[in-house]
Design a protein around this nucleic acid. Structure first.
Lengths: 194, 194
DNA sequence: CAATATTTAGGACAGACGTCCTATATCGAT
DNA sequence: ATCGATATAGGACGTCTGTCCTAAATATTG
């Protein structure tokens, strides 16, 4: 019966993941998760000892998911420049969600910085996954010294786009900024070949 | 006795303002505010009918404060370019707070987008105050058509810097990005004079 | 000083929360 | 079919929340 338990555990994490994104961590109760799943509230503590443990599981699940996603990109997208463009375009592809709920990574870190400062270190690993992958792509393009700086810059630009387009519920702003950011990156890439 | 009541009301708003910034809105209770002020919890409802009303008062207080601050800048700083630099440098001046608690405007909007979607429209007026002021400064520099786009871009860049430097608790990143943003703006300004 | 209006303190209230407990149900293996 | 292990349901618990009420204190006015 181990399979059943693991499957339910996974469903809890998936449901919590989505609810944390849509409503925030503190504002999501066990009842919310239980109702969304159709299981009993009290039964949670068979799978998780505390709400903190669910948060940790959600963060780990996201880190795993992002890592696998980037690994897929490495396979299906031929060059580092195209991969970086595909990364920046992620915001366009998810524009509906971002305009409605912000960036799942950034908004969670922002919340935890206020309410659960001790778990912020775990949460920003979600950022680190993307940053390390960006550094790899940038180094492949010959941006040896600037790779780290540019990777952090790209994270920040993405966060700015998400926060403002979310606050103003402005999809057009998001698309405009995504386009501009890709152009900026192309210029940075061009600089290195001279 | 009207004065006494208004003074206490102001103290409530000021205390709530700071606590909402440090802990978030939902995570700040009446008890938190009361304890910080040394007044009775039940007494709040003489000054405010609900917690939502306090939130509204805090947002309005911030809008007023920002408006007055920008008006001061107009007086004491000679040219629009220097004013824009001073705006961008605001993040450096407040780096301790931003690294610890994020941007007061952006983090509140991010929270309300998840929990109080109806009040987001009020909250993003805090952004609008800065945006309109930025447009004015940019137009003074002759950036007629691009003024609105650049103002939004500056807001987003600021939000990105705040979110990432907060998530990583990284003051150096903040300073680096602030410097870079000022350089970018100078280039944009230069473009127009040719 | 007396009378009135304003302000405060403190607790009551119902509901929601995270946590925990226990009886029951469901499964795999014998 | 029986048994031990695994999983579930449902409710009890203490605490905290926003809200509301009322008696007391304080200030203002006549």
């Amino acid at each position: 019966m181990r399979n059943k338990g693991a499957a339910v555990r996974q469903r809890i994490v998936d449901t919590a993941d989505q609810l944390f994104y849509h409503q925030g961590y503190e504002n999501t109760s066990f009842s919310d998760i239980a109702d969304a799943m159709g299981i009993s509230r009290g039964n949670f503590y068979y799978h998780f000892k505390s709400k903190d443990e669910i948060l940790n599981a959600v963060i780990n699940a996201r880190v795993t998911r992002f890592t696998e996603m980037l690994s897929e990109w490495d396979k299906k997208i031929p060059g580092p420049k195209q991969r970086l463009h595909y990364y920046i375009d992620m915001q366009s592809r998810n524009q509906e969600n971002i305009v409605s709920h912000g960036c799942p990574v950034g908004s969670l870190c922002t919340e935890l910085a206020k309410t659960r400062h001790s778990t912020l270190v775990d949460a920003n690993q979600m950022f680190t996954v993307f940053r390390d992958w960006l550094i790899t792509q940038l180094k492949l393009l010959g941006l040896k010294n600037k790779a780290k700086l540019i990777s952090m810059h790209l994270l920040a630009r993405g966060q700015g786009i998400a926060t403002v387009s979310n606050a103003f519920e402005d999809k057009e702003f998001l698309r405009r900024e995504v386009k501009q950011l890709k152009q900026w990156l192309d210029v940075e890439i061009l600089k290195v070949s001279h």
